[in-house]
């Protein structure tokens, strides 16, 4: 199997669910703790995560490297596809087209988002204690907030529809009925996870996260808008 595209494509599909999909759900729940538990709840979640052993290696092998491979190979997959929803305006074909469009949006967003958050922590411009206030600063700007809302919905669609495609690509849902049922479940996941992320975005806009906002002011110019 030399010069083979089967293995990288299969790996791309797997990484999208394990570990990236699991991390994505974890991210949604952690953010949601900002809505449910406010500033305290969010800080507890963040601290809980960063107390995990070997956190640097976890981030590297569970998040950064999988995202890099999934994103770069995904761009190549998107490049190889035609969009023919004009001629074939079927639901699944739209999902196919949106999967590629939202994938590109998500990849660009993730680069910006990681630069805005994790990289700024690494550079010492903010800390995990202040990350909630830092997010408050970003999402209280209308342009940033709009971009976040679009990108979050795109990312959740990409994850949910990708989960459906994963089940087909690994031969788990074979018949039309299995695929229809899993499609309904995945669209349910799309709605639920979107709501989690959107509620947390609104939570970050609340005054509660503004209190220590001055701490991150020095870094203001780095953000968009």
């Amino acid at each position: 199997m030399s010069g083979n595209s089967y293995l990288p494509r299969k790996l791309h599909s797997l990484l999208g669910v394990i570990p990236l999909g699991l991390f994505f759900i974890e991210h949604a729940l952690t953010n949601y703790s900002a809505f449910e538990g406010g500033r305290e709840g969010f800080l507890d979640s963040v601290h809980g995560l960063h107390k995990l052993p070997l956190i640097f290696f976890l981030e590297m092998f569970v998040i950064w490297l999988p995202i890099l491979f999934h994103g770069v190979y995904g761009l190549y997959i998107a490049y190889q596809s035609n969009l023919n929803t004009g001629r074939f305006s079927y639901g699944r074909n739209w999902a196919f087209a949106l999967q590629r469009i939202t994938g590109v949006i998500t990849f660009i967003f993730v680069i910006w988002h990681v630069w805005n958050t994790r990289v700024q922590v690494a550079l010492g411009h903010t800390t995990y204690d202040e990350i909630g206030n830092h997010m408050h600063q970003i999402v209280t700007q209308p342009l940033n907030f709009t971009l976040y809302v679009i990108a979050v919905i795109a990312a959740v669609f990409h994850f949910s529809n990708g989960l459906w495609a994963f089940l087909v690509s690994w031969g788990i849902t074979v018949g039309p009925r299995a695929q229809r049922v899993s499609s309904n479940i995945c669209m349910g996941i799309f709605v639920i996870v979107s709501v989690l992320f959107l509620l947390s975005l609104f939570a970050f806009r609340s005054d509660e996260f503004a209190s220590a906002a001055a701490a991150g002011a020095a870094f203001g110019p780095v953000t968009f808008g």
């Binding site: 199997m1 010069g3 083979n4 595209s5 089967y6 494509r9 299969k10 997959i77 190889q80 596809s81 023919n84 074939f88 079927y90 699944r92 074909n93 999902a95 196919f96 087209a97 999967q99 459906w164 495609a165 087909v168 690509s169």
Partner: peptide, 18 residues
């Protein structure tokens, strides 16, 4: 499972409709 094989399917499902 070779280059250009089944991995090229992107699940648009236009084929079954056509």
């Amino acid at each position: 499972m070779d280059d250009g094989g089944i991995e090229g399917c992107g699940n648009s499902q236009n084929c079954v409709r056509s």
